[in-house]
Amino acid sequence: MISLIAALAVDRVIGMENAMPWNLPADLAWFKRNTLNKPVIMGRHTWESIGRPLPGRKNIILSSQPGTDDRVTWVKSVDEAIAACGDVPEIMVIGGGRVYEQFLPKAQKLYLTHIDAEVEGDTHFPDYEPDDWESVFSEFHDADAQNSHSYCFEILERR
Rank of each mutant, 00 (worst) to 15 (best):
S3H: 02
S3T: 00
S3I: 05
L4V: 05
A7N: 03
A7T: 03
A7S: 03
L8I: 00
L8V: 04
A9M: 02
V10F: 03
V10L: 02
V10M: 00
D11I: 01
D11K: 15
D11Q: 15
R12L: 15
R12S: 08
I14Q: 00
I14P: 02
E17C: 03
A19I: 12
A19Q: 07
P21R: 03
P21K: 02
P21I: 03
P21T: 03
N23P: 04
L24I: 15
A26M: 02
A26C: 02
L28P: 00
L28K: 00
L28W: 01
L28M: 04
A29L: 11
W30A: 05
W30K: 09
K32S: 05
N34G: 10
N34C: 09
T35A: 00
L36N: 13
N37L: 08
P39S: 06
T46A: 02
T46L: 00
E48T: 12
I50E: 01
P53Y: 14
P53K: 11
L54G: 00
G56K: 07
G56W: 10
G56T: 07
K58E: 10
N59Y: 02
I60Q: 01
I61C: 11
I61A: 02
L62W: 03
S63M: 04
S64Q: 15
S64A: 15
Q65T: 15
Q65E: 14
G67S: 15
D69A: 11
D70F: 12
V72I: 13
T73C: 14
K76R: 14
V78H: 11
D79I: 13
D79F: 08
D79T: 14
E80P: 03
I82G: 01
I82A: 04
A84W: 05
A84M: 07
C85T: 08
C85R: 01
G86W: 05
G86I: 06
E90I: 03
E90N: 03
M92Y: 11
G97H: 03
L104C: 03
L104A: 03
A107I: 07
K109W: 10
K109V: 08
L112V: 08
E118R: 13
E118S: 11
V119R: 11
E120I: 11
G121P: 00
D122T: 03
D127N: 11
E129T: 08
P130S: 12
P130H: 13
W133N: 04
E134R: 11
S135G: 11
S135F: 08
V136I: 10
E139Q: 06
E139L: 07
F140W: 11
F140P: 12
D142Q: 10
D142L: 11
A143T: 06
N147A: 11
S148C: 00
S150F: 05
C152D: 11
I155F: 03
R159T: 11
R159G: 12
